[in-house]
Design a binder for these strands. Structure first.
Lengths: 205, 205
DNA sequence: GCCCCGCTATATCGAACCGAAATATGGGCG
DNA sequence: CGCCCATATTTCGGTTCGATATAGCGGGGC
């Protein structure tokens, strides 16, 4: 299981850090978007890890308000981390609000769909650039190189597919103005023929 | 924002359904893994949607314990759904425990890495088959076709990349037995030279 | 010199969501 | 007949998010 505690241990596998450091490394680190966690979960996680002896805490600076608490992983922490990593692997999850919206592109105004696609293209191009920067930054082990390469390969494949097929999606979108959904009179249930194809897509086995 | 309420509305865009139906459609529907929600969030979401007049509730069967409550989307519900879909699109999230583990492949026993990769290949091949089945099942609108095509394209790209580069990852893995992490004597902090490359990967800008 | 802004750094808290168990019932199957 | 499975919903503890509060410190602009 990959909870916030595991993410913290992962970050600390390399070097000691404060909670703030960990947050930034997670959100700006290699393969951005692969991992993340909020402060609201990182700090409690670090406290529990310290309790369990998987990490040690050291305060640096006045500790009134300024000054930080720096954590370092212990030998038990390393062992626990690698042991958990070797355990059962839960299923991956890909949550894409963009793709979700595209499922209903046929019901959305064409202009809006166009903008969404443009934004998505820009976002993916940014991510590809970030991954390439990470790859160029350091040699990294075989595992890290693989993850970077994987990210780049899939991002490129998705980007290319989007560029090649965006026209079809845009053509399928609503010609007219803002959200003008298929309307049914009260008591009128849509049957198989009138059902929007997008909703059917959610259901097909 | 795509919360559970939006997922319920999406499912109801096509046809009326019970909470149980919605759950199954989400987890088995097209592009499996794109969306999901638990019962513990679906039922409260449906109750709130009914309160807000975005869906209507109808009980079917005895309603003692047997019998279900069937929900149907209203005109306001449709309008609300499409309007929200047209709103700002949050960033996508890809959480892959497998890739996360691969980041640290260099610290894991080779045999374990091999098994993980085998499982991942099998999982992706299953998903590709599922997407193809969905695609073949019905024509679907332009949007849905695009999403299916996208899923297939990226899955294939990832699968191919994994098959082509798995050997490098396996070679980088620990030759020896179970989790034998790099050990540091107490008080011995790893510096840039001894830092595991995987952890560096999390940090690289 | 002063003020405002942004970065560092941590804490807090309500809301959302998950995941698993509990409950109840009807149907298939050996 | 008994058992397991599918349907259908509720409940609940635990995790995580996301936003807000607090506070010192360094730098840019005027």
């Amino acid at each position: 299981m990959i909870d916030v505690r595991m993410l913290c241990l992962a970050a600390l596998m390399g070097h000691e850090a404060s909670g703030y450091d960990i947050k930034k490394e997670l959100e700006k680190g290699g393969s951005t978007g692969l991992v993340d966690a909020s402060f609201g979960s990182i700090y409690p996680a670090l406290a529990r890890l310290a309790e369990d002896g998987l990490i040690t805490a050291r305060t640096e600076g006045g500790r009134g308000r300024t000054g930080k608490t720096i954590y370092a992983i212990t030998a038990e922490g390393r062992a626990h981390f690698l042991k958990t990593l070797s355990g059962p692997i839960p299923e991956e999850k890909y949550r894409s609000p963009f793709l979700f919206a595209m499922l209903f592109a046929d019901e959305l105004p064409r202009e809006r769909v166009r903008v969404m696609i443009d934004q998505q293209i820009a976002q993916w191009e940014e991510k590809i650039a970030a991954v390439e920067a990470s790859r160029a930054a350091g040699p990294g082990g075989a595992g890290a190189s693989f993850v970077f390469g994987f990210g780049e390969a899939t991002l490129r494949a998705g980007l290319e597919f989007l560029k090649r097929h965006r026209r079809a999606v845009e053509m399928g979108a609503r010609d007219a103005a803002p959200p003008a959904p298929t309307q049914y009179r009260a008591g009128d249930r849509p049957d198989a023929m009138t059902e929007p194809a997008a909703a059917a897509a959610l259901r097909t086995p």
